[in-house]
Design a protein around this nucleic acid. Structure first.
Lengths: 184, 184
DNA sequence: CGGTGGTTTCAGTATATTCTGAAAGCGGAG
DNA sequence: CTCCGCTTTCAGAATATACTGAAACCACCG
């Protein structure tokens, strides 16, 4: 009863795909989308939509939509094979780069809008009389926190992947930094 | 038709609560739970479950469940008023501390399990013959990435909130660090 | 004890999300 | 122009998630 185009997957790979799907769910990513991503990431070559559908037992149309979303995130792209009219899909392979892209995208879609909302709220409260000092303070704190995070992120973003990697891999590095920069 | 115990909320506060709820959704947190958290965070004093239900127009029982979840995360706790049998609930107020707690909790619930799964998968593949070199490499890369992130996180976690705050607030700090530590 | 004020549980309902299959779209080949 | 292989769209079906209200529970009080 297996769909014709199903790829053979080892148990380990199967397990990984399933887990990645669940992980996705709890991070607000559709399970199927995450599974497709996992499959493409681990596959040794680009796959057709048909193969993906067969392998994961999901409808062809569902694959189409999900692939579109993954392309929207910029971590999957189409490739072509000479003499073959079908679209082949492949995932970005560099994990660090992928991480960077996803982070950037989530910031853009979620953090940035929150920052504007917070700014608007604070502004509105300030215009109100009598201003509600409690609420103003709380929203202000939150806004300040997010702005600090935001600019710290912008700074880290400027590092090359290689430097970022080296930095994060330093053992005891953080403590060194702390004593170097923070003590005065 | 307003529920008796509804608190008066300014439009700005209202907007904040609604937005926070939506934010929650896209991060895998139930909208209602996020709204309650927002309300408690901004409220000038601890609130009863009744007040929360009234203010947000949700069922009393729903509030109960959601509060339990927030307590599970460790960012909301009960307080009591002398001579009043009811439970009052209040949110943690320090945004940085709250962030730290949420991060820790998500790591524990999501990153740690993923790390084990990846380790298991890699181990399984290694035992298989002939081992699938492609898959092994891909899973290995991912595992290495997550392990690096994990230990970097552990290091940062050792900083006091104050130091962390100072560190993230340094302008140009990252570049300084980069040249200090990375160049050799 | 039985009553009172409050909290929690849970089965059923409502809502939102995801998935499917059939139909429409698209572009090249003949 | 029409057929063919492939892709996308979309209305409705299936599923998962969130929410409600009624009932059970609990602890204290008289």
């Amino acid at each position: 009863m297996a769909t014709p185009a199903a790829l053979p997957l080892s148990p380990a790979v199967r397990k990984f795909i399933v887990h990645w799907g669940e992980m996705g769910s709890s991070w607000g990513v559709n399970r199927t989308v995450a599974q497709i991503h996992a499959l493409l990431y681990i596959a040794p070559r680009p796959l057709t939509a048909e193969e993906i559908a067969g392998t994961l037992s999901i409808a062809r149309s569902n694959v189409s939509t999900s692939l579109r979303e993954l392309q929207g995130w910029g971590i999957v792209r189409v490739a072509h094979v000479l003499g073959d009219r079908r679209d082949y899909f492949e995932s970005m392979r560099d994990v660090w780069e992928m991480f960077r892209i996803i982070l950037e995208e989530r910031k853009r879609r979620e953090v940035d809008p929150t920052l504007s909302v917070l700014r608007e709220c604070v502004a509105t409260i300030e215009k109100t009389r009598p201003a509600d000092p409690e609420a103003k303070r709380r929203l202000g704190d939150l806004l300040e926190f997010m702005e600090t995070m935001d600019s710290a992120y912008r700074e880290f973003r400027m590092l090359s992947i290689t430097d970022l990697r080296r930095f994060l891999k330093l053992r005891g590095g953080v403590r060194k930094v702390a004593s170097l920069i923070l003590s005065r």
